[in-house]
Nucleic acid binder design. Structure first.
Lengths: 339, 339
DNA sequence: CACTAAATTGTTAGCGCTAACAAGACCTCA
DNA sequence: TGAGGTCTTGTTAGCGCTAACAATTTAGTG
């Protein structure tokens, strides 16, 4: 029988390949899905037909019948910031290499409604699972309260109810910074914290406090910032006015930049008079004046792990929720010195 | 006839709603799609049934028959960087408010194969259109050469063949920076450029050169960087050694940070001895030492416009390709001064 | 070599939805 | 009052794929 593939403008479908290869469409499907019981000669014939026609499988149709879209959703807060951006980047890379597409929802503000809407939105789209980057208590709370229809992993999500969590050990980070400063002989360590509704900020405060307590030192009143350089600048001006400040642990690098700026303006030498430690290790911090000693968060690892956990949950069947903690690392530079 | 919706664990489908409301599934479909010819009483009944059953339409099935997924693809290079991250953020916000989902592919390196693979990948997923953030010449070239099956918009993509382009006027930006420095009385302006295969870098060089030429000044040899603070630092060390340098236009803020660092180390005062202008206006630059005069790119607007163009192309039928240019703005701070 | 087990292929149904057509209800106006 | 229209709803088909089962061929065994 003469083979004549329909050549309209229409993209070829499985039936066209089947006709071309002289088999049934099901056999084509089997080849595409690496089904074991296909004669290797048949397989080659099908593969050739696919190649010849430039056939590409319609994943939407596939998703309809398998009820799996091989798409993962990501909900994040302001992906303009370095941390979330890096985490999402790690997630995307890991997801893609695990064979999943990534659909993103980037929230302007995280409140319960926002998180729920985002989750609904992604569920509508038919994602197989979701990663929620939930650094604020409100987001973690929203997640804990929500009746989740789909497998979910929270990043930086505290002890978020039913879902698995992947996070950086913020407490350890706070300790690392504080202990470093104490080891240099500073009597005590001041702290510029992040906004109080962020779990990360809270963890860093806790680590700082714990380290001071362990060393038998009084913890001064922390100064609250909002992660922005501007708030760090303001905190820095306050600190510069105090005479007994010799060491400051700032909850992120951007605020540390503001602190450094304020100190420079007020003629406070770093690290001559005051030592400063930041948090995050953004690419710029090595070129601050002076280069900033900081605590590095491996955002990439966090992203990767979150996908690992999610995919295992998706493909490995019903696994109980996990909690994966990524350790931070200490990055010494020149903004800290002995008293 | 007694109404009894099947209540297994199974999610309700359109037929369930139809049964509940005592209509045909097609009528439910019509209500959902705002079809005009539905009696308002029927509509209410259907809506009630939907509400009662908690029905949500299966968008995958819908996509299969309509051949539209209401998903847009985004291909970008390293979304960890501030520029791409902000652009993608703008794209995502705009797409969502236009009723589209966003699927992201973030490339580690942009070569022709990478762009093609990403495009294929997204096409497989069934996206309706694609935004390619193609700041490198290689990416723009790849895009120009590719036989595109789906509507595409290039961001920062030069004169990219067949596709519409949305970009910031880099030449104007380069001029703005240079003219500002000249207006302060500097004899000439040095330049630390971005990598030569980036269109943005090229545009800034061109603007800088044009401004110098127009003022009848000699253009010194530009120093090539790679956008990183480290490369700016190295360029800064070179510049610090030259005696006749009084003004430098650096192609991005991160490199400018490196330049400032090098100057500080070498005891070169900014803006006392040398004036520096950056590019991008990253959030940190207002807190550099000294706060950086720079050229602001409205990434958000670029993202929004790219979606506008794409959606118009998608929904408004076959429109010819466009070129939309977003002007940069001058942000004066303290790193520049009169000679 | 008959006879079962395994490998290989084909056939049929249906995922949940929308498009296209068909049919009945209701209206208009000569 | 009845031919022609408009509104409203229902019926049927099919998007492109995989699952389940049926049918066929091939291999394996005493």
């Amino acid at each position: 029988m003469a083979v004549g593939p329909t050549l309209g403008r229409r993209l070829p479908v499985m039936a066209d390949v089947a006709k071309e290869a002289g088999v049934s469409h099901q056999t084509v499907s089997r080849v595409l899905n690496d089904h074991p019981n296909v004669r290797s000669e048949t397989r080659t014939r099908v593969l050739e037909a696919i190649d010849k026609l430039g056939y590409r499988r319609n994943l939407v149709a596939r998703a309809l019948v398998t009820k799996r879209s091989r798409t993962l959703g990501v909900v994040s807060f302001d992906t303009t910031l370095y941390g979330p951006a890096s985490t999402v980047y790690g997630i995307e890379q890991a997801a893609r290499s695990a064979g999943y597409f990534v659909s993103i929802v980037s929230l302007k503000s995280i409140d319960k409604g926002g998180v729920r809407d985002a989750l609904d939105y992604l569920a509508d789209q038919g994602v197989d699972g979701v990663v929620v980057v939930a650094p604020q208590r409100s987001a973690a709370q929203a997640l804990a309260d929500l009746p989740l229809g789909i497998p979910t992993v929270a990043v930086e999500g505290g002890q978020a109810g039913e879902v698995s969590v992947v996070c950086v050990d913020q407490i350890a980070g706070g300790r690392l910074a504080t202990e470093h400063l104490l080891s240099l002989g500073h009597e005590t360590v001041w702290h510029v914290s992040g906004p109080s509704d962020w779990l990360e900020a809270e963890g860093r405060v806790a680590g700082w406090r714990a380290a001071l307590e362990q060393a038998g030192r009084e913890a001064p009143q922390p100064l609250a910032g909002d992660w922005s350089p501007r708030s760090g600048y303001e905190a820095g001006r306050s600190l510069a006015r105090m005479k007994n400040v010799t060491a400051v642990f700032v909850a992120n690098d951007q605020m540390a930049l503001g602190v450094l700026r304020a100190f420079t303006e007020q003629g406070v030498r770093v690290p001559g008079q005051v030592s400063v430690v930041g948090f995050d290790d953004i690419p710029e911090s090595a070129y601050f004046s002076p280069p900033l000693t900081t605590i590095r968060q491996d955002f990439d690892a966090v992203g990767r792990h979150s996908i690992e956990v999610l995919v295992r949950q998706l493909e490995g069947g019903l696994e109980e929720r996990q909690r994966l903690v990524v350790p931070p690392t200490f990055v010494p530079r020149v903004s800290t010195a002995r008293v």
